[in-house]
Design a binder for these strands. Structure first.
Lengths: 208, 208
DNA sequence: TGTACATCAGTGAACGCGCGTTCACTGATGTAC
DNA sequence: TGTACATCAGTGAACGCGCGTTCACTGATGTAC
């Protein structure tokens, strides 16, 4: 039953895709290798032809998932101002909150990632760093002076908001958490045609 | 080997304490009932004299842990301005980030709580609501106009920041995430003796 | 207050189950001649 | 280009293990008289 190289590569990719979805929707620990293989249309025995361990699968699935997130952020950033802003608002929408299959691994697996092995945390860290850069670059172009810090704060606040929105049993409070975050974080640096960034003004008043 | 009522109650409390610590440091799923009982100095068989299931233990441990968090926030709020501000900064310190035993359950178990049963999510939601009220009340006293929304945003941002700081492999980036959050979220409404709250001024400039 | 007895907290063996991982096997693929 | 053979993706049974839960048992506690 040996498969061609192309088929083998495709199978590996399929396992990774299915695993990323499962880890994000069910959690890393509760998701079994056999379950992932079955979802990929295979039996569990063949798993170790593709991965050395479940740990390795976790790390690669996390890396892929972060990669997809980075790509979509990059695409949104290249699409211009409206596109990027829309992307941010979508991230803080009830629809994104409920999208447990496709969403952000940092939200879906946050507390599990904090306990994951080196390779997995490395993948998560690297992805986060890239998200920071994408957002910071755009803010720099728009005249912000503390673009990187703005990006770090905005991103971790977004992740916190969606995480909390997912935990809340009360639908109203859950939606309100997202709404508040949307409002506060849309608070961008001013577009380049204006003289000063908002954040500059803010900081000046704040330290006064 | 029957124990007195007082001893029984004490044992139950001990199991809950040990469980809350274990769930927060190791995660909910990876922590076994037998492991918790052993840490409480008991054998696993007696567990079901105190709890109907692991699920019930999770819910109660989460409720207790949230309760402790709420209490410490309340104490800090009653201690006045400096005390409360210090409490916020401690939450965003590297020491708190590394305190996996005693810390905030929303940070330590965030993504697992989002998948927990009704009772557990209820406990987490209720605790979060109480934290919001404590922070909002204090902000209202200090003249903020959108005190509740301020509190919701501040709290979910704090949780996001500590969660991300825990995931990051790079110590410098991890510390920086906390530092940025500390700086941005210390950005409080002005004390009552001044005429206008900062947030009012900010909002006015922002919408200009 | 003292005695007889029901209660029940805690023990430790056992339950079925699913986990991650291994392995002998199959048979199509890809390679060496 | 055709043939012989090594490779190896995928199967399915089996491994030891730890999980949550149950249960018969023990013996101190607390209660009824």
């Amino acid at each position: 039953m040996k498969k061609s190289k192309a088929e083998t590569a495709q199978t590996r990719r399929r396992i990774l895709e299915v695993a990323a979805q499962a880890f994000k929707s069910k959690g890393i620990h509760p998701t079994g290798v056999a379950e992932i293989m079955a979802a990929a249309g295979l039996t569990h025995g063949g798993f170790y032809r593709h991965f050395a361990s479940k740990e390795q699968l976790i790390a690669e699935a996390c890396a892929d998932s972060m990669g997809a997130l980075v790509e979509s952020a990059e695409a949104a950033a290249e699409g211009g101002e409206a596109s990027f802003r829309k992307h941010l608002e979508e991230f803080l929408s009830p629809e994104y909150r409920d999208d447990c299959l496709g969403g952000c691994p940092l939200v879906a697996m946050g507390s599990e990632l904090a306990r994951a092995d080196r390779a997995t945390r490395q993948a998560a860290s690297q992805g986060f760093r890239e998200l920071i850069e994408i957002m910071a670059k755009r803010r720099r172009q728009r005249g912000a002076t503390s673009a990187r810090d703005d990006a770090i704060f905005t991103l971790s606040s977004m992740i916190g908001a969606v995480t909390m929105a997912r935990i809340m049993g009360d639908v109203r409070l859950s939606a309100h958490i997202l709404e508040v975050a949307r409002k506060r974080l849309a608070d961008d640096p001013r577009p380049p045609e204006k003289k000063r960034s908002r954040s500059k003004i803010k900081r000046r008043l704040t330290s006064a």
